[in-house]
Write a protein that binds this DNA or RNA. Sequence first.
DNA 1: TAGGTGATCTTG
DNA 2: AAGATCACCTAT
Length: 198
Amino acid sequence: MTKLNEAFYLRDQVWQISKELIGKFLFTQIDGVTTGGMIVETEAYCGINDRACHANNGRKTKRNNIMYESGGRAYIYLCYGIHYLFNVVTNIKGRADAVLVRAIEPCQGVEVMLKRRNHNTLQNQLTQGPGSLSMALGINLSHYGKLLTGKTIWIEDHQIDVEHLIHSGPRIGIVYAQEDAHKLWRFYVKDNPWVSKI
DNA sequence: TAGGTGATCTTG
DNA sequence: AAGATCACCTAT
């Protein structure tokens, strides 16, 4: 039950970190209420040479500038005008890598998550897909840039060994990325019902 | 399967 | 300045 420390996030090779985040636990604490669950699906986005990454070709805007800071912070952005997507910034300052968390298996604060999502009963859609997950956890732009070593958003290691269950495939929704669209940088727990449907 | 919604990029 | 695109989700 230890919170991942800064050193975990400061490393290179974001795809490795993306894979290691499977089986870890993502939490938020908002208004005294903790919500969260086990990460079951992630995608790696690798700096200026990855055509699918927001920092591709050195792009740096008001939206993505936090990607260039040192790892261990939250990069959150509005997608399609509606959904807030949560990413984990990794690598040292100046290297704009990030991991998109795409799905969690809920374990804490289910009642509050149901309310945030306007759901009555616990179903897989509650935290399936990056937009849904963020809404369930109450993540929005007020969390932009927050340190993941802090008390609002953080990730814990519960010593669960899922490595043998992790599969990989191409990332979702990035067909425009040409040859990079074929990279196997999406990681997920095989046969886990909380993983998003393609 | 279409449409909502807004930041960013591209085109003229 | 206008138009296209986009790391998505929900209800037809």
